[in-house]
Design a protein around this nucleic acid. Structure first.
Ligand SMILES: [Mn+2]
Ligand SMILES: [Mn+2]
Ligand SMILES: [Zn+2]
Ligand SMILES: [Zn+2]
Lengths: 158, 158
DNA sequence: CTTCTTTTTGCAAATGATTTGCAACTGCAT
DNA sequence: ATGCAGTTGCAAATCATTTGCAAAAAGAAG
């Protein structure tokens, strides 16, 4: 099992190895896909590159508006949808909140959400991934994608 | 690994053992909790008992309205919330759709969603459950609950 | 069974997140 | 510089779910 940790949670995690920030080339991907590189989109992907947490649309909008106040929330949503379509970002719908996004750069991982703080901790387990595929296979299916989220609280050390 | 299957999917699954329909006593639970047994609530829990799939609020409303046309969708939502609060039912927010519900009777299980048909197949893996707990523990957490959903399609047998 | 108090209901309006119609605007290939 | 398809901001629309409120029903008491 590999354990990553992003911004907010660094320091909370014990055995943790920093993730080699993949630094996606969003602009290149957009261009390659024949999608126009507009000012709003540049600002938004710039924010995504500078980010290693899991912001929601409103948070991305706030950060974008700080750079260019003319950007609209609609455009943030539209851009996230475009990037998602390109496979450049992943959308997570953690329970009880709006969708949150992250660059699709690094290796696949799943999330542990701290119920008290809202912190999102990333982890990866080949064993679990293998088991998922095995289960699906037994049922006659191929896994296209999956969602594994652990919701928990810090273990009381007393 | 144990494999269950409910209504919609029976016949699609190979190695499958029918689940021993737990038949919850919703009325007793409501009464015990000091919650009034009204006509709408009786109809709704009656539907839940007769169900072994994962209907959403609108579907429960339709089935309820067929029995008592005066029932409102609001009441369905309110009743689901009450039952959820009592721990009598579970709410699932599968991707891209409204919440779906199921009685909290049987043993814990997770779901495989057929991307083509929408069928929901239940499965349970102690190995995965153990791994989840182990991962959380290593991160210093206790798992309160989790969400594991596999989205896949039938394996082409050719 | 009647009364009384509290909970619950149906309906309509409100929410919250996300999407969409549309006219004005802007990348970017000629 | 020109032209047009692709984009944008804004307001209005959606969708699932929740909520305010006055009327109706549950159930404890007598
Ligand atoms: Mn992540
Ligand atoms: Mn189920
Ligand atoms: Zn995974
Ligand atoms: Zn599970």
């Amino acid at each position: 099992m590999r354990i990553f940790a992003t911004g907010v949670v660094i320091g909370h995690v014990g055995a943790m190895t920093d993730r080699a920030a993949p630094k996606r080339d969003y602009e290149g991907e957009l261009k390659r896909a024949g999608i126009r590189l507009t000012r709003p989109r540049k600002v938004i992907v710039g924010i995504l590159q500078a980010t290693d947490d899991h912001p929601d649309a409103l948070e991305i909008f706030r950060r974008a508006a700080a750079i260019d106040p003319s950007i609209s929330l609609s455009t943030v949503y539209r851009t996230m949808k475009v990037l998602e379509g390109l496979g450049a970002i992943h959308r997570h719908a953690f329970e009880g909140g709006p969708s949150r996004f992250e660059g699709a750069g690094g290796e696949h991982h799943d999330h542990l959400i701290d119920l008290d703080t809202g912190d999102v901790i990333e982890f990866q387990s080949d064993k679990i991934e293998d088991l998922q595929n095995e289960i699906a296979r037994r049922l006659g299916y191929d896994v296209v994608h999956h969602r594994l989220e652990l919701y928990g609280r810090k273990r009381r050390k007393a």
